[in-house]
Amino acid sequence: MTDTAIPKAESQWVAVRAQFVKHKGAVAGVILLALLVAFVLIGPLIWRVDGTFVEPDTAKMFKLRNQGPSWAHPLGTDQLGRDMLARLMSGGRISLSVGLVAMMLAVTLGTFVGVLAGYFRRLDGPLMRLTDAFLAMPLLPLLLVLMVLFKDQLSRTLGVEFGTFLLIAVAIGATAWMPTARIVRGEVLSLKTREFVLASQSIGARSHRIILRHLLPNVVSPVMVAATLCVAEAIIIESVLSFLGQGFPSDFPTWGSLLHEGLDDLRKYPMRVLMPGLAISLTVLSVNYIGDGLRDALDPRIRGR
């Protein structure tokens, strides 16, 4: 034994953060996402134009329609003469939160189902058949039925905005967890035959400890990938629902519904599609890079380099 001082047990999170910061893409992703969040949260405080305001005077309203960028309307106006910048800001709030909340729900649910199915042989059959059943269901009609059944009730008890938001996030989360569950199950099946799990069993560790200590940390990478893909999917599904008239009411703009409204005049006014599309793409891109960086930072083998 040498008498070298034992390095203090520095928290793993310090090392994780150091590695995360080293990942240029991840840092760019964080900055981009922060900018987007600032845009939708702080933006409306600076740009104090009401995105839902329609000029009551019909003649004036017609003049205001489909304008290009100007000082009064930096991103132009839509087909009813509403300010696009303000609509992008308030729409982003809903889209971002639906995307992130639905993603977390889907990933949590999917990981939970996947771990149970992979680890406990008895649950494998029933849970995987359930997953298959969900995968086989036509999701859009299912979502529409859910909306029709619960939207009014929830809007009444929780308010239109929050009620619809909750319903959409939960409904998307509850119909997007299957890929994650399948991926996690496969990983757990192969992990649980590894000798370190056997070693833990030979110590007498209980199942939940084995799952938390040995299995979950080792399925992080595939879950991260599934999660980032999920965000984009959630934002798009929300826009489809809004487009079909079962999402948010049209006076609550979302990026998805802006995209769909702009689609009719795509040739004449491409800006109206480009802006919300760009916002969605940037969100997905930033989340993707953050997931990439997190995955690397949480893997000690990569962290060491």
Binding site: L198, A199, S202, G204, P300
Partner: peptide, 25 residues
């Protein structure tokens, strides 16, 4: 019932790579 007896008996595994969790110190 086995759990309290486990400490008496332990195992050393064949593959030292596979028997250690790569994410633990």
């Amino acid at each position: 019932e086995l759990r309290p007896i486990r400490p008496k008996m332990q195992m050393v595994f064949q593959d030292p790579q596979a028997s250690l969790n790569p994410r633990m110190t």
